[in-house]
Every structure is written in C-alpha cells, then in structure tokens.
C-alpha cells in the first residue's frame, strides 16, 4: 500500500526515533544514526526524512520547552505513532520471512567455493 511503504533510510530513522524515546529530535537522531549505523547525514537531510515520515503518519511531533544549549530555541520531539510501529514490525516480519526462504546452499555458497 502506498504510504506505508518506506525506504531504507526512513526505516533507520524510524528505528532511531523509537530507540531515543522520549527524546528524539533532529540533532539527537542524527547523532544516533552516526553512532549506531555509521551513517553521517547532514542535519537538513535528517529533518527532511523526519518531516516526510510525519506526513506519512508514521511519526507525530510536539514542541518542547526552550533550552539554553540551543540559544533559547525549542525542540521538535518526535514519537512513533501506532502505524509507525506497525510499519516497523511489518518491515521486520517481511525481512525475516524472506530471509528464511533463502536456500541454505546460497548462504553457504562462499564456503562451498572454498572447499571445492
């Protein structure tokens, strides 16, 4: 279904937002992605993905109180929505399901070439 289909980066960001609960905002998500997945993105790219996910209804957001470290600016805190969580689960399930269909021989292929 269109709208629930998400790309790889979107999936990573969704996961990160989940991990960071309840403190997921732009910079935090960017740092976490760098740390966990080794993806160093520009902050504007993270914003773009976050707002796209929000448009798709996978995330919701609210503004925090202003903080000093940001020069008095507020944060936009993102949290997973129910459909966001379901999308992650579906993606996970699909992968597992498909992974399980891979013939064992294919996964051992490189070993086979070694032994022959």
């Amino acid at each position: 279904m269109k709208g629930t289909y998400i790309g790889e980066l979107e999936e990573l960001v969704l996961l990160t937002v989940g991990i960071l609960y309840p403190d997921a905002y732009g910079v935090a998500v960017m740092d976490e992605l760098d740390k966990q997945a080794g993806r160093s993105l520009n902050i504007s790219a993270v914003h773009a993905v976050l707002s796209r996910l929000e448009e798709k209804g996978l995330l919701k957001s609210s503004m925090s109180a202003p903080t000093d470290e940001r020069g008095g600016r507020r944060k936009r805190i993102f949290t997973l929505t129910a459909s966001g969580k379901r999308t992650l689960e579906e993606a996970q399930a699909l992968r597992t399901q498909m992974y399980n269909q891979i013939p064992r021989i294919a996964l051992q292929f490189h070993q086979l070439t070694f032994t022959i």
Binding site: G26, G71, K75
Partner: peptide, 13 residues
C-alpha cells in the same frame, strides 16, 4: 524556524 534554527545552533555550539 524554531526547530531548524535550534538544531543548527546546537550543532554550532
């Protein structure tokens, strides 16, 4: 503006 400028400032500091 708040979130964008906030994030940019945070990274700057």
């Amino acid at each position: 503006l708040d979130e964008i400028q906030g994030d940019a400032f945070e990274l700057y500091y």
